[in-house]
């Protein structure tokens, strides 16, 4: 029982992080129908920046952890959004009207570029930060197994929930949200109605990057170690989450992230940590066999 609750907590935390990254994939897919393979690396860049600013701020003598977290979040979100915008502007917009494959290849190129850039400028060594929020709540003990809820885990879940509420409001209630959904449905028509489609797409990329930045900061605080290669695995997992939930669907991305987090967490605790990826992908295949557009995705209808 104790172990079960512990893994539920661990899985929830992991799933929240996957979900945050998956939102970026799904939003970009929703609006321009391409998989932004560089998204995982944008997340990595944000995690590296988080390390830089945590180190910098503590060197400047800021010792209050909440203040430091808020500052780091604001700075990293702002800078990562710029990255998101730049990636879109340089690698995808020039290819907007070419074949479907071209931006895909340029996304892979972007991913390699970002990785190598960080490796060369920041070095290949892993970047540690001291544990910012040490300690955990001891929830209860069952059969000699004490369930711990780390403060960072509470932080991650709270921040994710708050972001999701804000984000849903942004998409459903603001004029930017309406423009964004309009672009998703029909870009030509939206442009004819006088909405700047390129600007909306750029903003979507920035929003996706901002969510990845939150994930990057959370991961840095939670695991305490980042390096230039973390983007790949996280990107693949988050992409899987987006597909599982139904790519293009925002609640689907979060749901997919949570499901993958839970599968990994329970599989490695009760069966074998060795084959948890196999379990994840078997479930992905099963879902896609019965619901080809994912759990919450809508099948693409050919418009006549």
């Amino acid at each position: 029982m104790g172990q079960f609750i512990q893994q539920l907590i661990n899985g929830l935390t992991l799933g929240a992080v996957y979900g945050l990254i998956a939102l970026g994939y799904t939003m970009v897919y929703g609006i321009i129908g391409m998989i932004n393979f560089a998204h995982g690396d944008v997340y990595m860049v944000s995690a590296i920046m988080a390390v830089t600013f945590i180190t910098l701020l503590s060197a400047l003598g800021i010792s209050s952890v909440p203040l430091m977290l808020v500052l780091v979040l604001v700075i990293v979100i702002a800078l990562t959004s710029v990255y998101g915008w730049t990636v879109e502007r340089t690698a995808y917009r020039p290819l907007r009207n070419s074949t479907r494959l071209a931006p895909l290849i340029s996304a892979i190129g972007m991913s390699i570029f970002l990785q190598n850039m960080v490796q060369i400028t920041q070095g290949a060594r892993v970047k540690p930060v001291p544990t910012l929020l040490p300690g955990s709540l001891e929830l209860f003990t069952a059969n000699g197994f004490t369930v711990h809820l780390a403060y960072t885990q509470i932080l991650i879940v709270l921040v994710t929930v708050a972001l999701l509420i804000g984000f849903t409001a942004l998409i459903t209630r603001t004029s930017f949200g309406r423009q964004q959904r309009a672009c998703e449905q029909d870009r030509t028509m939206t442009a004819l109605l006088g909405i700047n489609v390129d600007r909306t797409i750029s903003l979507t990329f920035m929003l996706g990057a901002a969510l990845a930045a939150v994930a990057g900061v959370m991961v840095t605080v939670y695991y305490g170690v980042v390096d230039f290669s973390i983007g790949f695995v996280a990107g693949i997992k988050a992409f899987t989450a987006a597909v599982l939930g139904g790519i293009g669907s925002l609640p689907g991305a979060m749901l997919g992230g949570l499901i993958i987090g839970m599968i990994e967490s329970f599989w490695s605790a009760y069966l074998s940590p060795e084959y948890k990826d196999v379990a994840t992908f078997v479930i992905l295949i099963l879902v896609l066999m019965f619901r080809p557009s994912g759990l919450l995705g809508r099948p693409e209808v050919e418009k006549v």
Binding site: G2, Q3, Q6, Q7, N10, L14, F145, V219, Y223, V225, S229, I230, V233, A234, E264, S265, F266, W267, S268, A269, S272, P273, E274, K276, D277
Partner: peptide, 19 residues
Amino acid sequence: ESITAGEKDYSGLVSKLKA
């Protein structure tokens, strides 16, 4: 046990060791 290198989350293994 065996784990996959290159990941970040080993909390499953940790719970298993603890249990």
